[in-house]
Amino acid sequence: MDVLSDLLHRARATNAQIRQLIQRPPWAMTFADAPPLTVVATLGGRASVRLDDDPGAAPVRLAAGDIALVSGTARYTIADSPDTPPQMVVRDGRKHLIDAGAPAQQPLAPRTYGDGLPGATALLRGAYEIRGEVGERLLRTLTPLAVVPAGPRTRAVLELLAAETAHEAPGQDAVLERLLDLVLVLALREWCARPDARVPSWHRALAAPAIGEALRLLHENPGHRWTVAELAAKVGQSRATFAAHFTAAVGEPPLGYLTGWRMTLAADRLRDTDRTVAAVAREVGYEDAFAFSTAFKRARGASPAHWRRAHRSA
């Protein structure tokens, strides 16, 4: 499994919420308790997205087929135009009217709301509850508002997702979640391929055949007792050449990257499971629980037991 697939798989959250809005201008909705990651796609018409947590951030306009990935913000506004003031606030899953003259929000079909009249803007919104250290690692590949222009590959999937959103059939939730996952993966690919995208160095390193293969091996089996020599042999390079190329591409030595990835996995296991510290240590490649605790405290600033108590209560 490649690194991006591994991150998406481990950070995957169930119960993704998918809604379609078909609304004539003027309209504007503020989401006051945004999830860690939201996918907003314009199916028809035009829209804009504004990050309300960042007063200096300019609204970004979306044309038909554009996809916006919103992350790292607790409050944002979607509107037909940047000039339209918010007419309603969505908080805790409930709509609260600000403007008595707000446009109708009647149900039009399953998961579809608005007025559905000619000239309306059609939007899809999918919300992910991504949690944990792996989720944070995934979100660091994005800026708070990443916009992917319309393209033939994403357009075809968006059309299918829109059709399924307004449909009701057995297994519908599973179909919708997988289609939304596909939209997310395609959008992430497009975003990370942009020359101006500020993505982590490990992501750019995936394009280097030997380094990408080494990263895949580390993610596929993080508990293995890897050595630099073994990794170099696996990818067909000398030890010195591999170590130099890996460090230059990723920004840290191979075993330094492995330690960071193990600590990420360990943090999520400590928070989400009742496994003992010794069991977690073994799962991420440490036979000695004391050595694991030392490494974890160095990386997270607290012992595994203290970190678990603090983050479970939080």
Rank of each mutant, 00 (worst) to 15 (best):
R204V: 04
L206R: 12
L206N: 03
L206V: 12
A207C: 03
P209H: 02
A210W: 02
A210Q: 09
E213G: 00
A214F: 00
L215D: 06
L215A: 08
R216A: 13
L217R: 09
L218S: 03
H219I: 05
N221L: 09
N221K: 11
R225Y: 07
W226E: 08
W226C: 04
L231A: 10
L231T: 08
A232I: 04
A232D: 06
K234P: 01
V235R: 03
V235P: 02
V235W: 03
G236Y: 04
S238Y: 00
R239K: 09
R239M: 00
T241N: 00
A244S: 12
H245S: 13
H245G: 06
T247V: 10
T247N: 10
A248Y: 06
A249Q: 13
P254G: 10
P254T: 08
G256P: 11
Y257S: 01
Y257I: 01
L258M: 11
T259P: 00
G260K: 15
W261C: 06
M263D: 01
T264N: 08
T264I: 14
T264A: 15
T264P: 04
T264D: 13
L265I: 14
L265A: 06
A266F: 13
D268A: 07
D268R: 03
D268P: 07
R269S: 07
R269H: 10
L270K: 09
L270Y: 12
L270H: 08
L270R: 09
R271K: 09
D272Y: 10
D272V: 07
D272F: 13
R275Q: 10
T276E: 12
V277G: 12
V277D: 12
A278F: 03
A278C: 03
A279S: 14
V280E: 12
A281G: 09
E283P: 04
V284R: 12
V284S: 11
G285E: 14
G285P: 15
Y286K: 15
E287K: 14
E287F: 12
